[in-house]
Computed example of a mutant assay.
Amino acid sequence: MHINVIVRDASSHIQEVFRERQDEPWAGVDHGVVLLLKAGIKPEYNYGDFDSITEEEKEYIREHMDIDPVPKEKDDTDLALCLTDLVSKGYQSINIYGATGGRMDHALGNIHLLMHEQLKKTKIKIIDRQNVISLLHQGKHEVRRQEGMKYISFLPFNGETTLSLDGFLYDLDEQLIEFGTTLTISNEFTKNIGNVHTDNDILMIQSKD
């Protein structure tokens, strides 16, 4: 099962996504619920403490659906609560929008959720206007270029990762990648499909200028 999640982001990009995916299931996190309702999409689920919206926006939500805000003081972020619940409901593919703009601590925390023990086996993508971010598990992968994306980068989550690339502008043969390296930033596909082998989980980012 697949579902889309919106956290925040009122840009023209997300309005286009809403139009393209209006018939797919959606979940809203905090202000994302407002964005969905204004786009004419009623979310299947809503999550959050709703501390980032106004009283008028809360009333707008209540006119369309029931919400049950979680306490503001809690151990996990609203998005973490959302994703762990969706995975427990059986969703195996999740696209997340509006999770990288704004505060950097939130953006990095959201990206780190890809390594969450309860989430890392789920196919999760964090998508914004310029990037598609996902996790590649240890092993061999056939990677397809995302439409409209020019660059592909790989960032290790572990202290040392051995990476092999084939089908890219800069191929690698069992190259040791450590924290802090920029060797694997801004690579490019030579065709629409490339092959990746990694001995540790690694972050993959496809992007455009």
Results as ranks from 00 to 15, higher is better:
T190M: 11
R21Y: 05
P69H: 03
A99G: 14
L79W: 02
I67A: 01
M1E: 12
R19Q: 14
S52A: 11
T198N: 05
R19V: 08
D173P: 02
F189D: 01
W26Y: 03
I152K: 03
K42A: 13
E142I: 14
H64V: 01
V196E: 12
E142R: 13
P156N: 05
G98M: 06
Q130S: 15
G167S: 08
D76C: 07
E73F: 10
S186H: 09
V29D: 10
E73G: 05
F157R: 03
I193E: 11
D85M: 00
S88L: 05
G167N: 03
G90E: 10
K38T: 10
H112D: 09
I127N: 06
L183Q: 07
D201G: 08
V34E: 02
V70G: 02
D76F: 10
F189T: 04
P69I: 01
D128H: 06
D78I: 02
S186L: 12
V70M: 05
S52L: 05
S207F: 06
L155P: 01
S88E: 15
I133P: 08
L155E: 01
E16V: 09
I202T: 04
T184V: 10
L79C: 06
H106Q: 12
V143K: 06
L172H: 03
S93Y: 15
F189G: 01
I152E: 00
E174K: 15
F189S: 07
K72S: 14
Q206T: 12
N46L: 02
N158I: 01
L176A: 11
L37N: 05
G148F: 07
D23S: 14
G28T: 05
R144Q: 13
C82M: 04
L136D: 09
S186F: 11
Y151S: 09
R103K: 13
E24K: 04
I67N: 04
H2K: 14
H64M: 00
M204E: 12
I202D: 00
T162Q: 01
G139S: 07
I111C: 08
G28D: 05
Q92K: 14
G40Y: 06
K208S: 11
D201A: 14
I67Q: 00
E73H: 12
E147F: 05
T181N: 13
T84R: 15
H2A: 13
L35E: 11
F18W: 02
L81R: 04
I133W: 03
M204K: 10
Y47C: 03
S88V: 00
A107W: 08
T198H: 01
G40Q: 02
V33M: 00
K58Y: 04
A99N: 12
Q175M: 15
D199N: 15
Y47T: 06
S12I: 03
I6E: 05
V33C: 09
D68L: 00
F168I: 14
T54Q: 08
H141R: 07
S153P: 10
T184R: 04
A39V: 01
M1L: 08
R62Y: 04
S88T: 11
D23Y: 09
I94Q: 02
E55L: 12
N131C: 13
H197R: 13
N4R: 09
I152R: 01
L119N: 09
L183S: 10
I202W: 04
